[in-house]
């Protein structure tokens, strides 16, 4: 494992922990999109089915369990926790799952490495991950005051994606037979979705003002 991949995984982990700690300590999920969190729960569930079939490393299995556990915990907090769920604004978080899930199913059936149940699910999880952040970005745009933690959560997720791209470039040149077109293209699309957010994030940081996305 190279340093970019490890740094990417660590920022991913940090983003999830920031979000979980925010929700757990201030007992509020204001500004957090339940839709995005549910999509991530689906993404991890469909991709990490391989913990039962392939063993890669302890690190790999451990991280998979963490991502599965954290995404389900966040969904649980927003839906079921008696205090947290009161802060969830259903009327702002209106993105429809089905508009993202259905096209991803179709795409996964058409473009996959092999037409098997596992491979189609794997491709589906990558396509869905690429667009899963959209409900969160839409919600950020609607929210007047984005709190620091929600901003940091999205920022860390964006950094994680960017580091994965550097990791693929590194692996392409240092390893033989390392070609995963599906991963790379959907990963690139995913990272581009953060570009706009990054722009405003750095602007607000430079001018020391509260982050606000234009409508």
């Amino acid at each position: 494992m190279n340093i970019f991949r490890l740094a990417g995984d660590m920022t991913h982990l940090a983003s999830v922990l920031v979000l979980l700690l925010k929700i757990h300590t201030i007992k509020s999920c204001a500004g957090v999109s339940l839709k995005t969190q549910e999509l991530y729960a689906i993404v991890f569930t469909t991709r990490y089915l391989d913990i039962f079939t392939d063993f890669i490393s302890l690190y790999n299995t451990f991280m998979k369990l963490i991502f599965l556990g954290s995404s389900y915990s966040i969904v649980w907090y927003i839906r079921r926790h008696k205090i947290v769920r009161r802060s969830y604004d259903k009327n702002q978080d209106t993105f429809r799952h089905v508009f993202l899930i259905l096209p991803c199913i179709v795409l996964a059936l058409l473009i996959n490495e092999k037409l098997t149940f596992k491979e189609v699910l794997w491709a589906f999880s990558l396509y869905l991950e690429a667009v899963a952040i959209l409900p969160q970005l839409v919600l950020l745009q609607r929210t007047k005051n984005i709190d620091n933690l929600t901003g940091q959560y999205v920022f860390l997720l964006g950094v994680y994606r960017a580091l994965y791209i550097v990791n693929w470039i590194y692996r392409y040149f240092t390893e033989t037979h390392f070609v995963h077109w599906i991963t790379w293209i959907s990963g690139l699309v995913q990272t581009l979705l953060y570009a706009d957010f990054f722009y405003y994030y750095f602007q607000s940081w430079k001018t020391n003002q509260k982050l606000q996305l234009p409508a």
Partner: peptide, 10 residues
């Protein structure tokens, strides 16, 4: 030789 890249990423 294994030509299929391993899915070792998260």
């Amino acid at each position: 030789k294994d030509s299929k890249p391993a899915k070792d990423e998260l």
